[in-house]
Amino acid sequence: MQVTWGNVTVTFSNPEEAKKYAEKVARKLGGQVELHNGQFRIK
């Protein structure tokens, strides 16, 4: 499962870890987490 924002992509084998990481990054950037085609995207 991947977490992407800007031109950065981070890949996780565990979807739960990916979700936690995406939420943490979104909080830092003041963005929203979207699940899109099996990727968490931060907008």
Rank of each mutant, 00 (worst) to 15 (best):
M1C: 11
M1I: 15
Q2Y: 07
Q2H: 08
Q2C: 06
T4K: 09
T4D: 02
W5D: 03
W5G: 01
W5N: 03
W5K: 01
G6A: 08
N7S: 11
N7D: 11
N7Y: 09
V8E: 06
V8I: 14
V8T: 10
V8P: 01
T9P: 01
V10G: 01
F12W: 03
F12K: 03
S13E: 12
S13G: 10
S13C: 08
S13R: 13
S13F: 10
N14F: 06
N14P: 02
P15I: 14
P15E: 11
P15F: 15
E16R: 10
E16A: 12
E17Y: 11
E17A: 14
E17N: 10
A18N: 00
A18M: 01
A18C: 04
A18S: 02
A18K: 00
K19C: 10
K19M: 10
K19T: 04
K19H: 08
K20Q: 11
K20P: 02
K20N: 10
K20R: 14
Y21G: 01
Y21F: 14
Y21E: 02
Y21D: 00
Y21M: 05
Y21I: 03
Y21V: 04
A22Y: 02
A22D: 00
A22G: 02
E23S: 06
E23V: 07
E23F: 13
E23I: 10
K24E: 14
K24M: 15
K24R: 13
K24Y: 15
K24D: 13
V25N: 01
V25Q: 05
V25W: 11
V25S: 02
A26S: 04
R27L: 14
R27Y: 10
R27W: 09
R27E: 14
R27G: 08
L29T: 13
G30R: 07
G30M: 06
G30V: 04
G31S: 07
G31F: 06
G31W: 07
Q32C: 12
Q32G: 05
Q32W: 15
V33W: 06
V33E: 00
E34D: 06
E34Y: 12
E34Q: 07
H36S: 10
H36G: 05
N37I: 03
N37E: 11
N37P: 04
N37C: 13
N37A: 07
G38R: 05
G38I: 02
Q39F: 07
F40I: 09
F40N: 01
F40G: 01
F40E: 01
R41F: 15
R41P: 02
I42D: 01
I42G: 01
I42T: 01
K43E: 09
K43Q: 12
